[in-house]
């Protein structure tokens, strides 16, 4: 008699980018994979999408996130869980110096240049700025997937319909 061998699921860590998802307790994560084409003898980039369990909605769209596969599937879709947000979008610190960065420039450098020219009163100030994500669902519609409007109802406003 053949024995039923129960194999243990190997736990793997994956790095991906968070994408907009309509689920309330899960976030959709894009993971790039390089597939080998035997005919052309070349690697081509392909994006795989997975759903990771995220009850507190830690990751925002665009974040670089570390995920791990679950031993048992939570649902048919959800196969992973979010462990840590490694690079939050638009709020990155330089790992070598530990300073905050805006693109390819340090934020302190921008402030110093502004001082030399004479900073204006209305200029953006990082210290006085409200917490990140305060315009969500008001002016910034990036957290949920955008769709084409397929019906019109005056009682039902569709902020994510284009």
């Amino acid at each position: 008699m053949a024995k039923q061998i129960v194999e243990k699921v190997k736990l793997k860590y994956l790095l991906g980018i968070c994408m907009p998802s309509s689920k309330t307790y899960a976030s959709r994560i894009q993971i790039p994979v390089y597939e080998y084409d035997e005919y052309l003898h070349m690697h081509f980039k392909k994006n795989n999408f997975i759903y990771a369990h995220d009850p507190d909605r830690v990751c925002k769209v665009g974040d670089t996130v570390l995920v791990q596969n679950l031993e048992e599937k939570l649902t048919k879709l959800i196969t992973h869980k979010v462990i840590e947000v490694i690079y939050p979008v638009g709020d990155i610190t330089d790992p070598i110096t530990g300073k905050k960065v805006a693109g390819s420039v340090y934020r302190d450098d921008i402030a110093e240049i502004n001082k030399l020219y004479g900073e204006s009163e209305n200029a953006f100030n990082y210290d006085k700025a409200p917490p990140k994500g305060y315009l969500e669902d008001k002016k910034d519609f990036t957290q949920k997937p955008v769709y084409k409007k397929y019906y019109e109802d005056p009682n039902d406003p569709q902020p994510y319909g284009v």
């Binding site: 907009p20 665009g62 979008v89 638009g90 709020d91 805006a102 693109g103 209305n122 953006f124 990082y126 700025a129 409200p130 990140k132 994500g133 305060y134 315009l135 002016k139 910034d140 519609f141 990036t142 955008v146 994510y160 284009v162």
Partner: peptide, 22 residues
């Protein structure tokens, strides 16, 4: 938005814009 999220939100508020991704 990718470079500097808080400055992006500051602009949306000041210039009264709404942003939808493609």
């Amino acid at each position: 938005r990718l470079i500097d999220y808080s400055r992006f939100e500051f602009l949306l508020e000041k210039l009264n814009l709404t942003y939808h991704p493609p």
